[in-house]
């Protein structure tokens, strides 16, 4: 590598707009899947709580899915969703998020104490209103714990998508490597980590607002 410094500030200064575009793309392809995962985990989790026999096999399937290597899954999907498309990267990331969020949703919904549930019913709450006003709020600390794990790993994994042509900030790693130029790589690592930490902080803040009683981290999932 010779005398090339680790960071050339000049390059960063002249590429700010470029870095911002990659950061935005990265946020979209890594965080939208987490949102989709949550939207699927809620109804699936409700079903699993309602029909407990469903949960074991579903959890086993998602455990295996979670173990699949991201790069391999991206590649296997290319014939179906196309090279360098958002779908190729976002489909597996959605599955990973769902794999993390399903168990935490089920744990959260099961954490509602039976007397609380009965008290709500006795006050005249129907099943839907009880769900919205009692069960989901009680599950918030669990949901946030799951979302934190899902979001951080999704942000870190999305950069691998660069190898199949759609990886947001991950593109900086390939670019820097091919040109033997460390500055973009360092910038990429810093921005990916920063995005993950900011997302984590936002989720913590959301929990504090939505579930102020859960100060202590006693329910952190996996």
């Amino acid at each position: 590598m010779g005398d090339e410094p680790l960071v050339r500030w000049h390059w960063i200064g002249t590429h700010l707009g470029y870095l911002r575009d990659l950061l935005l793309d990265h946020a979209v392809i890594s965080l939208l899947p987490v949102l989709f995962g949550l939207l699927m985990a809620l109804p699936l989790g409700l079903l699993c709580v309602r029909f407990p026999r469903l949960y074991q096999p579903l959890a086993a399937v998602f455990n295996v899915i979670y173990a699949l290597p991201a790069l391999a899954v991206f590649v296997v999907l290319i014939p179906y969703t196309g090279l360098a498309t958002q779908a190729t990267v976002m489909t597996p990331l959605t599955c990973y998020a769902l794999a993390v969020l399903l168990p935490t949703t089920v744990d959260g919904l099961r954490s509602v104490p039976e007397p609380v549930r009965q008290a709500a019913t006795a006050l005249g709450y129907g099943p839907w209103r009880r769900l919205a006003a009692v069960e989901l709020p009680t599950a918030v600390p669990y949901l946030v714990a799951g979302l934190r794990v899902a979001a951080v790993s999704s942000i870190s994994l999305a950069s691998v998508g660069a190898l199949v042509g759609r990886g947001g900030l991950g593109y900086l790693f390939m670019d820097g490597f091919q040109r033997t130029f460390p500055t973009p790589i360092v910038a990429g690592i810093v921005l990916v980590t920063a995005l993950a930490l900011v997302t984590d902080a936002v989720l913590l803040l959301a929990r504090r607002l939505l579930a102020p009683w859960a100060r202590r981290e006693s329910v952190v999932g996996r």
Partner: peptide, 23 residues
């Protein structure tokens, strides 16, 4: 320990690998 490992999980491996090879 928990906080540090959470931060470590955010590190993108592809970035670390390419940087390590260059260095």
């Amino acid at each position: 320990v928990t906080a540090l490992s959470g931060a470590a999980r955010a590190l993108p491996t592809l970035g670390l690998v390419t940087l390590a090879v260059l260095l």
